[in-house]
Design a protein around this nucleic acid. Structure first.
Length: 646
RNA sequence: GGCGGUGUAGCUCAGUUGGUCAGAGCGCACGGUUCAUACCCGUGGUGUCGCAGGUUCGAAUCCUGCCACCGCUACCA
């Protein structure tokens, strides 16, 4: 019986599109889910959407549609983002689903029947300009502590959950389970919060009706946290006649949440469960925020970063890598596009991608593309193997504690060591001196290192292995792609045919380097500087060899159509000699599809394929642009399709 | 206001119980190499370890005070 592992993200609120911060939590969850699957766990990965509440109701009304229709539309964008990011969730729970509503009502009835829920009146202080509730204790001379203006006393009839009754039980639980709340700094905060005394929690509202009705009192709807948190068990079938999933996966759960909602997950949620006689979750991890210019992302600050745009530009793997690499354990990280490009170029292009590139190039050049039989290992190989072994152990450790940045740092120990190994072993010298056995030993250890790296990186960058295995000639050897196999150093089968292809992560050129600011204070969030236009004089010169690396071809447009939902993109079917290519081009504002058919255009044929709007674009059509006008490059007189441009 | 935390090279940060603990990565400078995506490898400098006292043979590491910054302080998705 495989050990169960259940991982969840928060269910996101579909009042708006998701931003890069949501992608962070979900990417973390996906990475740990993929890792645990590779380790043989029986994994269940849940995400979803929290669809009730006043804000949704209001937004839907503004849009002139029903709340359900409104959330249906937004949730579709969620699911599209997760698809593009490669999120491998097993279930997507929507709180408007019957299965969820039933579970919430069952839980409500149960707690009410045992006296843990009662009807009373909610009192609080409300600052109308700030739209914020305050408790008595936090008021500054009876006024709003934020703006100093007077506050209003508000009272509303509501149902209350007896949180306070369980404070001691909670403290005992947390004491007996020191790893329950992570990181420890959050744990301490929560403990001191509970020690300060727990008040009962108001869990219903009467001011709107887009929600789950209170059983037997439909004037009230069940409010936010009682509704939302229950998703973690309603999705497993809790409280129904079909709750095998609940029995299997609960409470072996890891809840991943942002630091802003740690309290709800570590205090309210476990107490709801305790009251219901259900075991509390095993682990709640509160990660930091991804900060952007101006602090936390928010629509009003206008600093929201759309992950979809970044995925189109840099690829899902690169975005996942950045998100996972940039947040030190439990702390905040900082996003700027420059930081993203710098990470990308340094870690992915220069170090990792280039290691694959140079290694495979040498196997092709010095061994005819066939992985050779290694000779006896020397101290160099022993040391390389030791670094690999250490890195694997550390990666596993860091992943268990959800330190993704630490795990990636551990993996890069191998990347760095392997690059150094190439330099020390200098295969080009061995080839020149005809030290064939030694040369074969080095090449073998290089490809074995690439294999291990690919397995290690699979949970982080799921798009990588499918691109790498064919290059290593291992696409038909699934057992060598498994996690367990990397514990057996030297498993790479000699005789495999490698096939070097385009760089895995081509360098991102043309984005302005970060402006060197003198002594930026540590507390200052880096500013996002607009992308700089590169002028002629600023471009570095290239050699004729650099130019020769571009495979430019004449292609004929066979068909063209607009890409639905965009106003700039055209999908083109091209004939390049004998070959057919699909290319997406951003020229729809200037060119009509029908005027392009039959024309000859210039194609950059060996550009790394990219997905645009879900369509894989296999190359790029060249065009001139002065910022507004666009003019396609074409040939001066007709010539055979597929002709090379030199 | 209350509770907790942080302050170490230009930047981001490691530094268990006090004695090679003054470090890593990035950036910068110089050198090497040519397999590779102008990439990789090596070498190097800078720090009064927030400030001021104290304990100790000895403190970045313990104690006190001060300064600065951050987190939590309930019904907000």
């Amino acid at each position: 019986m495989a050990e169960p592992f259940y991982v969840t993200t928060p269910i996101y609120y579909p009042s708006d599109r998701l931003h890069i911060g949501h992608a962070l939590t979900t990417t973390m969850a996906d990475t740990i889910a993929r890792y645990k699957r590779m380790r043989g766990y029986d994994v269940w990965f849940l995400t979803g959407s929290d669809e009730h509440g006043q804000k949704i109701q209001r937004k839907a009304a503004e849009a002139g549609i029903s709340p359900q229709e409104y959330v249906d539309r937004i949730v579709a964008t969620f699911q599209e983002l997760w698809r593009q990011l490669g999120i491998s969730y097993d279930d997507f729970l929507r709180t408007t689903e019957e299965r969820h509503k039933k579970a919430v009502q069952t839980l409500f009835r149960r707690l009410e029947a045992q006296g843990d829920i009662y009807k009373s009146t909610y009192h609080g202080w409300y600052c109308t300009p700030c739209e914020t509730f305050w408790t008595e204790t936090r008021l500054a001379q009876g006024c709003c502590p934020d703006c100093g203006r007077p506050v209003e006393k508000v009272a509303e009839e509501g149902y209350f959950f007896r949180l306070g009754r369980y404070a001691d039980q909670w403290l005992r639980f947390v004491e007996e389970n020191p790893d329950f709340i992570q990181p420890p700094s959050r744990r301490n905060e929560m403990i001191s919060f509970v020690r300060g005394g727990l008040e009962d929690l108001c869990i219903s509202r009467t001011t709107f009706d887009w929600g789950i009705p209170v059983p037997g009192d439909p004037k009230h709807v069940i409010y936010v946290w009682f509704d939302a948190l229950t998703n973690y068990i309603s999705a497993l079938g809790w409280g129904t006649s079909e709750q095998e999933k609940f029995e299997k996966y609960w409470p072996a759960v890891t809840h991943l949440v942002g630091k802003d909602i740690v309290r709800f997950h570590t205090i309210i949620w476990p107490i709801m469960l305790m009251a219901a006689g259900v075991a509390p979750p095993r682990r709640v991890f509160g990660h930091g925020w991804l900060m952007v210019s101006g602090g936390k992302m928010s629509k009003s600050k206008g600093n929201v970063v759309d992950p979809m745009v970044l995925i189109e530009k840099y690829g899902a793997d690169a975005i996942r890598y950045f998100l996972l690499r940039e947040l030190p354990y439990g702390a905040d990280g900082y996003y700027t596009e420059e930081a993203l490009v710098e990470r990308y170029n340094r870690d992915l292009a220069n170090d990792l991608g280039n290691l694959f590139s140079r290694s495979l190039a040498m196997v092709e050049r010095y061994a005819g593309g066939v992985v050779p039989v290694p000779g006896p290992a020397t101290e160099r190989e022993t040391e390389l193997a030791a670094v690999v072994r250490h890195s694997i152990a550390r990666t596993e450790q860091e992943l268990e504690r959800l330190d993704f940045a630490g795990a990636l740092a551990a993996i890069w120990e191998v990347v760095d060591r392997a690059n150094k190994y190439v330099d020390e072993a200098a295969p080009w010298n061995l080839a020149r001196e005809k030290q064939t056995e030694r040369l074969h030993t080095v090449l073998y250890h290089l490809v074995e290192t690439l294999r291990v790296l690919t397995v290690l990186l699979a949970p982080f960058m799921p798009g990588l292995p499918p691109r790498v295995w064919p290059q290593l000639g291992l696409e038909a050897a699934p057992q060598l792609q498994e996690w367990e196999s990397i514990h057996r150093w030297g498993s790479f089968p000699p005789g495999a045919k490698v096939k070097r292809k385009a760089p895995l992560f081509p360098r991102q050129e043309g984005v302005a380097a970060p402006v060197a600011e003198a002594a930026t204070p540590a507390s200052t969030v880096p500013q996002i500087t607009p992308r700089k236009e590169v002028t002629l004089t600023e471009m570095a010169t290239v050699s004729i060899d650099d130019f020769a690396r571009l495979d430019l071809r004449v292609a004929e447009v066979e068909a063209a159509e607009r890409v639905a939902g965009t106003d700039r993109l055209l999908k083109l079917a091209l004939r390049v000699g004998e070959e057919e290519r699909t290319v997406v081009a951003g020229i729809a504002q200037v060119y009509q599809p029908e005027e392009l058919v039959g024309r000859q255009v210039v194609l950059l044929a060996n550009l790394q394929p990219a997905k645009l709007r879900g369509i894989t674009s296999q190359g790029m059509i060249l065009a001139a642009s002065d910022g507004e006008a666009i003019s396609l490059l074409t040939v001066d007189r007709p010539i055979a399709s597929g002709s090379k441009i030199t």
